[in-house]
């Protein structure tokens, strides 16, 4: 099998979930996944693969942006998790995306309703860079004061997430990944671009 499962699905899945939970509870903090390595021709990193293994099963529907299925991801997901792949973004519980795949025409993901805001798509984002300290300023629940984040060239994604605030409680939550690194920006986070600093050298993905 080129795509590997967790060596210990129960406990490794639990650890990966706790990393995602910690990232979601404290937006802008980085977590490092200990997930199985992905095949060389995969378009996603280990942190994202581990998140899919931990959260997806036959009750979840996944939308995949063109190109990210590289390396036989869809077959591997079917085998390891049983999750269904959907072509309709509004039906997706999770969506595998890159920032570029969110530029016009943007897929119409589910944002929930005012009565059921939880019925919304969670974005699982593949980034070129991800590091603490960067040009995007985060504030809100889970953040003492402010945090900043480096996400590389991700303007369409950040515009989409910054628009969350106006529609709250409807909105999209994002789990950001880059290689083995993982962070999250839930819809409760207030996002703005601060005076641009230089992207840091160590922010690029190591494992891809």
């Amino acid at each position: 099998m080129r795509w590997k499962a967790f060596p210990d699905p129960v406990h490794d899945g639990q650890r990966q979930f706790r990393r995602v939970l910690a990232a979601m509870a404290e937006p802008g903090t980085l977590q490092v996944a200990e997930a199985p390595a992905v095949p060389d021709d995969a378009a996603i990193g280990a942190a994202l693969w581990g998140t899919l293994l931990a959260l997806c099963d036959l009750e979840t529907r996944l939308w995949i942006a063109p190109g990210l299925e590289a390396g036989g991801l869809i077959d591997a997901l079917g085998f390891h998790t049983g999750c269904r792949v959907t072509a309709a973004p509004e039906e997706a519980d999770f969506a595998l995306v890159t920032p570029a795949s969110l530029s016009a025409p943007a897929p119409a993901f589910a944002e929930g309703s005012d009565a059921y805001p939880d019925r919304s798509t969670t974005l699982l984002v593949v980034l070129d860079a991800l590091a603490e300290e960067g040009p995007w300023r985060l504030a809100g629940p889970g953040i003492p004061g402010t945090r900043t984040l480096e996400v590389g060239a991700a303007a369409p994604l950040m515009r989409r997430l910054a628009a969350n605030r106006a529609r709250f409680p409807r909105g999209l939550d994002a789990i950001l990944t880059c290689g083995e690194r993982l962070a999250a920006i839930p819809r409760s986070t207030r996002l703005e671009a601060q005076a641009l600093g230089q992207p840091q050298e160590d922010s690029a993905c190591m494992s891809q």
């Binding site: 899945g13 979930f17 939970l21 959260l55 969670t122 939550d173």
Partner: peptide, 15 residues
């Protein structure tokens, strides 16, 4: 557990 975990992530995102 996965169902509850997915629910928890939404709960944290919408305090």
């Amino acid at each position: 557990k996965r169902m509850i975990r997915r629910g928890l992530l939404k709960a944290v995102a919408i305090p």
